[in-house]
């Protein structure tokens, strides 16, 4: 449990985001956001409540909401499209999540652990859901009919008549140069740093991967020069 000053700090982080004033104009408690919120239909979660907490600067309950509630949001942004004040409750949640990570909140670490595979794929390959991730033992709930033709995954992918899609461990083929450019973006925008904060093991794996790819790219560039 954080002390009041820490909670105030967290709130200051949230409201200093440049989007904050765009996404929170006021609130009359009309309930349109919660009405259209998919999460509110199943969780005791209410975008109206999140907006109210921020609007009334209730730092203790904001902190409280960041432990659990903000992760219930499905980020569909229906709330933003509907709000008569043009607030974006979903956008505010996104800011709160960023801050939860920047501050290394335990809640964020807990929530995101099972999401690590997607992050790993994204950070290393530049695309997210690859065919080899959809293994039956990861998705028993998707049923036995997950695929209607039996066969080796590699062959099935080869049977997709678009060359760039015939991959197994990425969604599409990404050029080495593109990957390396993306790593530069991660480094320069602090994404790798927040990953390190969230999950050190995952970060180590990713770092090794990136280094390897960079070396490959250097080698490739040298080869080009030699030619």
């Amino acid at each position: 449990m954080a002390n009041y000053a820490e909670m105030q700090q967290i709130f200051d982080d949230i409201r200093s985001d440049f989007r904050y004033d765009h996404e929170l104009n006021g609130c009359l408690n009309c309930g349109v956001c919660t009405a259209t919120c998919p999460s509110a239909h199943f969780y005791d979660y209410s975008p109206r409540e999140i907006v109210q907490l921020l609007w009334t600067e209730n730092v203790e309950q904001i902190y409280d909401a960041m432990q659990e509630k903000i992760w219930a949001c499905a980020q569909c942004m229906t709330c933003a499209a509907r709000c008569p004040f043009k607030n974006s409750p979903g956008g505010l949640v996104a800011i709160m999540r960023e801050v939860a990570i920047a501050r290394g909140l335990q809640s964020a670490k807990d929530v995101l652990r099972p999401f690590g595979r997607v992050m790993l794929k994204l950070i290393t390959t530049g695309n997210q859901l690859s065919p080899d991730m959809i293994q039956p033992d990861h998705f028993p709930d998707w049923g036995p009919n997950i695929q209607k033709v039996e066969g080796d995954l590699k062959v099935l992918r080869k049977a997709i008549p678009v060359k760039t899609l015939q991959t197994v461990d990425t969604a599409w083929e990404v050029s080495l140069k593109t990957s390396v450019e993306m790593y530069t973006i991660w480094e320069m925008t602090g994404v790798l740093k927040s990953l390190e904060m969230m999950d050190e093991n995952l970060f180590d794996v990713i770092e090794d991967f990136i280094d390897e790819k960079k070396e490959d790219y250097e080698d490739w560039l040298e080869e080009q020069d030699e030619d």
Binding site: F42, Y43, D44, K69, W71, A72, D110, G143
Partner: peptide
């Protein structure tokens, strides 16, 4: 994860189940 946000009586779960 957000189990505390769901009333217990709204959760349906079979402990042990094999389908198809």
């Amino acid at each position: 994860h957000e189990k505390s946000l769901i009333d217990a009586d709204r959760i349906m779960e079979h402990d042990s189940l094999v389908v198809d």
